Amino acid sequence: MVRNVIGSILALAGATAAVWSPFRAWYDGRHGSDYRIEDLFGGITDAGAEVIGSILLPFAFAALVTLIGVVLRSRLLVALAGLVVLGFTVLWMVRVGQAEGSLTVGGGAGLGDGVANAVGGGLLLLLGALVMSGRGRSRDTRLDHGYAPAPTHPTLDGTGPPAPAPYPDPSSAGAPTRTMEEPRWDRQDPGPQQWDAPDPHQEPDGPRGPRP
């Protein structure tokens, strides 16, 4: 989290310096906003340029990409913005060197502070991309490392583990063949027992005594 904050600050500072640089002197007192975009590909001329069609355009695009990268915490987008700023700055230096024959640094007839701001802004963007940690990883480490939970049911190709048997296999060694006695339906059921009720007029068994 701290790295993302520091990297975002560096990236935003670099984008600000890059956007501000065309409004400073680039070479021989001429501002960067006076150089046309097409001059970077066809050769430097003395023709002026509109602000929207000057070298400010790629720098503004880089600043927009930087904002998106900071919001999304994307190191790739921030680094891309830095490469755009440095790429157009180097391309401008090459074209100016071809037009002037050589490049001088310092003084009134040389590279101005606008070029320094552009180069510094591009370097800050790259440094911010290096400092940023990017998005956090998922909490599920198994998914991060490509691990997946083992299947609990057999797959169609038979590679999964077999389904658990509901009852023990009687053929396995040491397994009991019968856990309880099964009912046998061939036995005769004696049915309910019948008892003869005693006859009340019958004398009880035993020695008979004299009648009164």
Rank of each mutant, 00 (worst) to 15 (best):
W92H: 10
F23I: 07
A109E: 12
S171C: 07
F23W: 11
G108A: 08
T89G: 08
L156E: 13
S133V: 02
I9Y: 07
L67F: 04
D196L: 06
V105P: 00
D113P: 04
P164K: 05
M1D: 14
V90R: 08
V78M: 08
L125W: 00
R3E: 15
Q194H: 11
V96D: 00
T89E: 07
W185A: 14
S33I: 12
P183W: 09
S54M: 06
R36D: 07
P149I: 01
G32L: 08
A62K: 05
M93R: 01
P198D: 02
L91K: 10
G29Y: 07
Q193F: 12
L127A: 05
R3P: 10
A81K: 02
G128M: 02
A148D: 06
P161K: 07
L111I: 11
R137V: 12
L156V: 12
G107M: 04
M132R: 02
V5K: 15
S21V: 11
R184F: 14
G110F: 03
T89D: 11
A13P: 01
T104P: 02
L103N: 03
P22M: 05
R24H: 12
A15H: 00
A11K: 01
P58Q: 13
P22K: 05
P212L: 10
S133F: 06
A11L: 10
S74Y: 09
H145Q: 09
P166Q: 06
D144C: 05
L156Q: 13
D140Q: 07
L40I: 06
I9C: 10
P204F: 05
A129Q: 01
P162K: 09
I52T: 13
V71I: 14
A116Q: 07
G209Y: 14
V71W: 07
A163R: 05
Q193C: 11
D169Y: 03
D46V: 09
S54C: 12
T159F: 07
P168L: 02
V94M: 09
E181G: 08
T155R: 14
R3Q: 15
W20D: 07
M132S: 04
T66H: 11
G14W: 00
G82V: 15
F23P: 04
L143C: 12
Q98V: 13
D34W: 08
P161L: 04
V115A: 04
F61L: 15
M180L: 10
R187M: 15
D28N: 05
V119M: 11
T89S: 15
D144T: 14
L40Y: 01
Q188S: 14
L130T: 04
V51C: 05
D199Q: 02
T66D: 15
T179A: 11
A129N: 07
T152R: 12
L124T: 00
G128P: 08
G87W: 10
Y27D: 00
T159H: 03
P161V: 09
